[in-house]
């Protein structure tokens, strides 16, 4: 009995140590266990597909015959970068993105400033401005195709009514891209406006009162107080609008199919065309990687240029 007690007491510190070591390990592992579900989800639907598309982009392959994949190295990229059509696609995408983002954010900012005042019609205007956001892009596109119809469309009828010549809208290489910009801006303005209004309403009123006592003019107040205070909102919209403009697809697919003469073809539609219409999987994959790279670069650029100008409270 005496012996057993002695042995037990000698073992006790060892046991405690072991438990402590195990607990220490668990503490280290625990955070990873917590994020594991999210990590698995992201890996399955995000990281692995990205790696896989990069892998696919160095092969010549077609959806029709997946058995015959031929390693071609950087050839797909070289082909794309030397292709005049692809240059046009890149240019279209850039122009479309810049125009949509600038107009979409600019207009919604002005609208939000106007709607943020106590006016009678605010609720009605807010609801009608926001409604395009909840309609499917396909329906929106169909609607605008009718509006922009050169012969029977409402827009030309209006132009004619006020004595202006009819416009070519989607039928001309010069005006088609602009018409798509118009549709996208119309669609995005409502959402942006709501986000801006939320931002405006979170600015403390006493800042404006302090500014009034500081003899700040309306322009000064806008430039020195409202815009800096809205910078996180502005930045958020800039990033999300840029990314979604880069990924425009539905409107092109329904309204123009990239035409006339490739004038409205943009990256995502081009990828779809290469992969699904021409069965050129390798080129489509390489173009996808380029899209990913461009969006990534732009986002990094935005973050870098805005890092000092965005004020987070």
């Amino acid at each position: 009995m005496q012996k057993a007690v002695v042995a037990n007491s000698a073992n006790a510190p060892l046991l405690q140590q072991e438990v402590a070591v195990k607990a220490g390990r668990l503490t280290k592992v625990r955070p990873y266990l917590y994020v594991l579900p999210a990590l698995l989800f992201f890996s399955a639907f995000f990281f692995i597909p990205i790696l896989y598309i990069i892998y696919l982009s160095v092969f010549d392959w077609s959806l029709l015959n997946l058995e015959e994949m031929e390693w071609v190295g950087w050839q797909n990229y070289a082909d794309l970068l030397s292709d005049a059509d692809f240059h046009q696609v890149l240019l279209n995408t850039m122009l479309f993105t810049v125009a949509t983002v600038v107009l979409g954010i600019g207009l919604s900012f002005l609208l939000a400033l106007w709607l943020n005042q106590k006016r009678k019609l605010v609720a009605v205007v807010q609801a009608s401005v926001f409604s395009p956001h909840i309609i499917s892009l396909v329906s929106v596109s169909m609607l605008w195709m009718w509006l922009m119809d050169p012969q029977y469309g409402l827009l030309n009828a209006l132009l004619e009514f006020i004595g202006l010549p009819a416009y070519t809208w989607l039928a001309d290489t010069k005006s088609a891209l602009l018409s798509l910009v118009l549709v996208s801006v119309w669609k995005v303005v409502g959402y942006n406006t709501i986000v801006f209004i939320a931002g405006l309403q979170s600015i403390p009123k006493d800042l404006y009162e302090a500014a009034a006592l500081d003899r700040s003019t309306r322009w000064q107040t806008l430039r020195r107080i409202t815009i800096p205070m809205l910078s996180p909102t502005l930045f958020f919209l800039l990033i999300t609008n840029t990314i979604s403009s880069f990924q425009v697809f539905d409107t092109i697919s329904i309204m123009t199919q990239g035409g006339p003469v490739n004038s409205t073809n943009m990256l995502v539609y081009y990828i779809y065309e290469q992969g699904m219409d021409y069965y050129n999987g390798g080129l489509a994959s390489a173009a996808s990687v380029i899209l990913l790279g461009l969006v990534g670069l732009l986002t990094v650029f935005h973050f870098w240029t805005m890092r000092k100008r965005v004020h987070y409270r």
Binding site: D206, E209, A212, L213, R215, S216, R224, P228, M229
Partner: peptide
């Protein structure tokens, strides 16, 4: 308000958060 030649100290100070102390005073 700006023309009345009065200055006010607010309960929450109402300092301009995006400006530094110098600009807050100089505005």
């Amino acid at each position: 308000p700006g023309k009345r030649d009065v200055a006010m100290v607010f309960q929450n100070y109402a300092l301009y958060p995006t400006m530094n102390v110098f600009d807050n005073i100089a505005f």
